[in-house]
């Protein structure tokens, strides 16, 4: 128990030193939004193409989820590491000291990994939620039409929740933010259905 508290304290210190709270939140929302939109595109694209085999959508969704996760992890790790090493070097120049063994050096190594994990996991959440109805369909729990409807509905709800989260963070109207993100999803859906119709 004491060991756990020490680890939590250490994480808190690294997070404070590297100021990763705000940027982590931003990464999470951006990439979760990305994940929701991509999976909405996959599901609607399959619908327009008339796909009736849930295993196809599950495979495409899981593949996309994995690719987004790896892309998010790798992209954030590489860019955050470069930025933070540059900042550490600037600080070392100002301090005329080597900070590699200090908590600042530790935080510089910790933050890119933590942020990369956040960014890698964020798109998986909406992607998994959207695929879930098709997994249930595969198991015979619902019809493919119901799976499509439920998947799209769940994705729109998630988009609303992401918007609401931003609204809460900024201290502004939760519903307005929620409706804006839902509207983006609906507009994308209309565009895909419109293009697919032609």
């Amino acid at each position: 128990m004491r060991r756990l508290r020490e680890v939590v304290e250490k994480f808190r210190l690294y997070s404070s030193v590297s100021e990763m709270g705000e940027i982590g939140r931003r990464y999470f929302v951006i990439n979760a939004f990305d994940g929701a939109m991509v999976i909405l595109g996959v599901v609607l694209g399959a619908f327009v193409a008339g796909a009736r085999d849930p295993s196809m959508i599950v495979s495409a969704g899981l593949g996309g989820m994995l690719a987004m996760g790896i892309s998010g992890f790798a992209g954030v790790y590489i860019s955050e590491r470069a930025e933070r090493i540059k900042r550490l070097k600037d600080l070392e120049k100002a301090m005329l000291a080597d900070l590699g063994n200090s908590v600042i050096g530790d935080a510089t190594r910790f933050a890119p990994v933590a942020l990369a994990v956040i960014d890698g996991i964020a798109p998986a959440i909406p992607a998994f939620v959207a695929i879930l109805p098709f997994i249930l369909c595969l198991r015979g729990a619902m019809l493919i039409e119901q799976a499509y409807a439920l998947s799209i509905l769940l994705t729109l709800v998630l988009l609303f929740l992401l918007g609401a989260l931003l609204g809460r963070l900024s201290g502004e109207n939760v519903f307005i933010y929620g409706f804006v993100t839902t509207f983006v999803g609906l507009a994308t859906a209309a565009l895909i259905l419109g293009l697919g119709g032609n």
Partner: peptide, 11 residues
């Protein structure tokens, strides 16, 4: 003492 802004003096 000379220190970076972070960690703060509280920490």
């Amino acid at each position: 003492v000379l220190k970076p802004h972070k960690p703060s003096i509280l920490e």
